[in-house]
């Protein structure tokens, strides 16, 4: 097992280099760079000063050389500093000689996005699991039809439209929920519990909107898994032993039906750090989606590369974790039994 792990970890290195190389080249294929976007069309900004900036950022050198600089920095885990944003560090905070701390861009954006995505993932699983089980138990019956209809409407409805409608209805008409942002203006003056409630109220809509689209996939996945398992011989055996239906469904069937979900969970780990640009813009949430989107529009290469690299690492780790978890959960995989 340890050797297997080490081997997997070792192979991640060339994969990462390959991914970063391709990302780096594709990024530079897009026309323009930071000097065309930042004050690029202000007649007060002269071409000479833009050339000067290009030189400072090494943008005038061949792409391969630029990639070399980047790789050299990455070798020491230095994600560099943003071209825009007053050269703020891309990833983590930095302390200067005077002891002033400059926070990293990803450092500030990541917790918010993680919080929303983890909450919405939890919400998806908490809602989709029972929905899937109910749909499987009543296959083609009214509950199944209603659940399928509901999750597909949720899947198909444009998130930004629903978000705006809910913001209007809950925020403007009734004033039940805040419209945008993460905290109220007087957040700092509230007590501990009130602060928690305040943040929670701000999170309700973003989490709901980002969870809604994911319900369909997971609940159908659970439903199909359950249907497969319910047809197995050991379920018939369990029923034949006279076990109560509840035990059959939840202890024998559901547990086995959940196995593929582990893979799904592993695959959703990299997704946790990616935010939705539209949702973040609508709800004015300073998350990763907005950070990445703005960086692409600004051609802020260090930030783009930083986010892509972290995404790639997390994807590879997610895959690895999914495989390990699978081995842990399924004895057949662990013992090398082919199935």
């Amino acid at each position: 097992m340890t050797r297997y792990l080490l081997k997997r970890l070792f192979w991640m290195v060339p994969l990462l280099i390959g991914i970063s190389l391709i990302s780096f080249f594709i990024m530079h294929l897009a026309p323009g760079d930071i000097t065309t976007t930042e004050a690029g069309f202000n007649p007060k900004a002269s071409e000479e000063s833009r050339q000067k900036l290009r030189k400072l950022y090494h943008l005038d050198e061949p792409i391969l050389v630029q990639y070399g600089y980047w790789l050299k920095r990455m070798a020491t885990l230095d994600f560099g500093t943003s071209f825009a944003s007053h050269q703020r560090p891309v990833f983590w905070e930095r302390r200067d000689a005077q002891g002033n701390v400059q926070k990293g861009l990803i450092q500030e954006a990541l917790p918010v996005t993680l919080l929303i995505n983890v909450l919405s993932l939890v919400l998806i699983f908490v809602v989709a699991l029972p929905l899937g089980v109910i749909a499987a138990l009543h296959q083609n019956g009214p509950p199944d039809r209603i659940i399928t209809l509901f999750v597909f409407v949720g899947f198909a409805i444009p998130g930004f439209w629903l978000a705006l409608m809910l913001m209007y209805w809950l925020g403007v008409v009734h004033g039940w929920l805040p419209i945008s942002g993460l905290h109220s203006l007087d957040h700092d003056k509230l007590g501990g519990l009130a602060q928690l409630v305040d943040t929670a109220r701000h999170l309700v809509l973003p989490v709901f909107i980002s969870a809604l689209g994911g319900l369909a996939g997971i609940s159908l996945f659970v439903k199909n898994g359950m249907l497969d398992v319910l047809r197995q011989d050991y379920i018939t055996t369990a029923r034949a032993k006279g076990l109560p239906e509840k035990t059959v469904v939840y202890r024998h069937a559901l547990r086995n039906a959940l196995l593929p979900l582990i893979t799904l969970l592993g695959l959703s780990i990299p997704g946790l750090i990616g935010g939705s640009v539209i949702a973040e813009s609508l709800f004015a949430i300073p998350g990763m989606g907005k950070l990445f989107y703005d960086a692409v529009l600004m051609r802020d290469f260090p930030v783009i590369m930083g986010i892509l690299t972290i995404g790639a690492v997390l994807t590879l780790i997610g895959n690895l974790l999914a495989d390990i978890a699978y081995a842990w959960a399924d004895p057949r995989v662990r013992r090398g039994v082919v199935h």
């Binding site: 705006l164 913001m167 403007v172 805040p178 419209i179 945008s180 942002g181 813009s281 609508l282 709800f283």
Partner: peptide, 20 residues
């Protein structure tokens, strides 16, 4: 003076409607 960062103009307008 407080300046809130709200990227989306539609959200800004909703905040204006709600007197925020």
């Amino acid at each position: 003076l407080i300046s809130r960062f709200i990227p989306d103009p539609a959200s800004q307008f909703l905040e204006l409607m709600a007197d925020n």
